[in-house]
Each structure stands twice: as C-alpha cells, then as structure tokens.
C-alpha cells in the first residue's frame, strides 16, 4: 500500500539524459565532498586513510545496458527470482515466493550508537533527504556466482554525516528486522537471528558504499532486501545486509551472523579476492548469471582502483 511512497519512476525518464548525467556528475562530486568532510570529522586518527577512489569512472550509466567494464546487466527476472535471503528460505527461489507479502511500509531505521545526533528515520524521509541515484554494481556471491545490478540508492556516508559519528566510533553495525512471523527462515535456529553485518568506518564512508531502495528504476522487491539494504560491491554479497532496521556506530568490530555460524569460514572483511579461497571452495572463478562460461574473479570484484587503498599494508589472507 504505502509502498508508493518510494519514487517509482527513474529520474532518467523525466530529465533529458545529458542534463541528468551532468546533474549526477555534480551530485557525485558532492557525495565525494560529503565523504571527505565526514572523514575529516570523524575518522579515527589511527585508522588508515582511505583512498576515496574515482567513483566518476563508475558514473553515469542511466539508460545503459552495461556496467563500466562493459558487462551486461543481469535481467530483472533473474535479479528478482534468484536470491540468497535465508530469512525467507535457503533455496534461491524461496525468497521471491515467501517474501511476497512482506510488509515494507511503514518502515523505520534507527541510527544510533556512538553518534552526536541519533535519530530514527522513515524510509520516505531518507529518500527525501538523500535523493536516490542509479549505480550499476557487480554483485559477487561467496558461492561463486555473480550479477550486474542497477541499484537506486544513496551513499551511506550521507546518512552517517547527518548523525555525526563521535571520535570513538570505529565500526558500523547493521541489523535486519527480527520477525519470525513474517520471516519463516528465522525459525531455523541453526543461525543466530537477526542477521547482523558490519563495516569498518572508513569502508562505510566510502563513496561506493550504498544504501539501496530500488532496483532497475523500481522500488526494490522484498527478495532484494526492501525497503532498505546495504550494497558494498567489492565484498561478497552476504555483507550487503537486507531489510535494515538498525544502524549503530560502535567502537568494537561487530560479529556478523556468518562469523558466528562458521567462524573459520567467514571473516569480517569478506573482500572479493580470487587469491584467498574459502576454506572449502575456490574463489578463483565465478559464473555470471545468464552466461554459460565461467569467468575469472577480479580482485575486489573489479573495484580495486577505488578500494584497494583501504587495505594498504593488511594481510588479506589473514583478514579474509
């Protein structure tokens, strides 16, 4: 019902494309500025200075059918029917079926912890405050399949700047809704619900890190993590937590659901890395959904230029 609160028409359809593209380049510039400001304001002195990469190389793709590497978009059909969302079942086809009646409105997200201005936002407030833009990102699942998805969303750093993290904040902790009534998968007590994920503050502030509200110019469907999900394109898909109700700035590294479920298999960082195998399977190659042949996996999922600097000097085999 109130789902219509989320703008359903991609701005590219309203604005002439060249104007639209210019506007977005301008906004990306702004985003970079905001991130830099936020960093200056709150990054802990001890944390490595993140290289705010050239997001411009990823920019305006509206109306295009490929990402910046020339890879074709995954079809809307596949993006909305092949999902890992264990709250709605462990089979890839479960979420599309079981999440059909999931209530995504009204929806609020509580942002707090080590911040000066904790606040609870309605999703519609977030969309008003931070108008969504399109980002075409590759998504690489830890199970060695991948997609190219056009998201609509806003940079997480804009939201974080609004709540003003204190100097003590080092990490960001995210939490999914806990509602076994609506999410039958949460009755499976093999896992410790609710789903929790975390990012280091500089990762969270990176311009590539997105809070998505839409897919393919439409409001996101529940199986894609509606109404609000994280998208961190250089990390394995499970880091990109769905249906977020809580975001906390914290001092200690949070433990994610997967770290708790299998500590020796899932690390905190989970950066896409063809040279660091999952303990039980290789990450050297992947299958792009819709393609037959496998392709080699790229370091940081092809975003090394933008994000490798975040991990300078770190042993990525140790911090997997």
């Amino acid at each position: 019902m109130a789902k219509t609160d989320i703008p359903g028409i991609p701005s590219s359809e309203i604005t002439p494309e060249h104007v639209y593209i210019n506007r977005r380049q301008f906004m990306l510039g702004l985003g970079g500025l905001a991130a830099a400001a936020a960093l200056a304001a709150c990054a802990a002195p001890s944390s490595p200075a993140p290289a705010v990469g050239s997001v411009a190389t990823l920019a305006p793709t509206a109306g295009k059918s490929t990402d910046e590497l020339g890879d074709r978009l995954t079809t809307y059909e596949d993006v909305t029917t092949y999902n890992n969302y264990y709250e709605f079942g462990t089979d890839k086809s479960d979420p599309a079926r079981q999440a059909k009646n999931f209530r995504t409105a009204p929806w609020t997200v509580q942002v707090g912890g080590l911040v000066n201005k904790p606040a609870t936002f309605g999703v519609e407030d977030l969309i008003r405050l931070f108008p969504p833009e399109e980002r075409i990102y590759r998504l690489r699942c830890v199970e060695a399949w991948s997609m190219v998805i056009p998201w609509q969303g806003f940079q997480l750093n804009k939201l974080l700047a609004a709540v003003e993290p204190t100097g003590a904040a080092k990490y960001v902790r995210f939490e999914t809704l806990n509602d076994p009534e609506q999410m039958p998968g949460q009755r499976n007590d093999w896992y410790e619900w609710p789903y929790v994920e975390g990012l280091r503050l500089d990762e969270a502030l990176h311009d590539l890190t997105l809070l998505a509200t839409g897919v393919y110019g439409k409001p996101a469907l529940p199986q894609n993590g509606a109404p609000l999900r994280l998208v961190v394109p250089w990390k394995y898909g499970f880091k990109s937590i769905k249906s977020i109700v809580k975001i906390d700035l914290v001092a200690e590294q949070p433990s994610s659901l997967w770290m708790v479920a299998a500590p020796d298999e899932y690390g905190f960082y989970a950066n896409v890395n063809p040279d660091v195998n999952h303990p039980r399977w290789s990450q050297a190659s992947e299958r792009r959904i819709g393609e037959t042949a496998r392709r080699r996996t790229l370091p940081f999922n092809g975003y090394a230029e933008q994000v490798a600097g975040l991990y300078a000097g770190m042993d990525l085999a140790k911090f997997y």
Binding site: N277, H278, R280, W281, S282, Q283, A284, S285, R294
Partner: peptide, 12 residues
C-alpha cells in the same frame, strides 16, 4: 587450467 585452480582449493 580453471578446473585445476578450483580443484586445488575445493576439498569437497
């Protein structure tokens, strides 16, 4: 080549 890369890392 690809099979070797993956078999070496996939005990299953």
């Amino acid at each position: 080549g690809l099979i070797w890369l993956d078999v070496a890392g996939k005990r299953f």
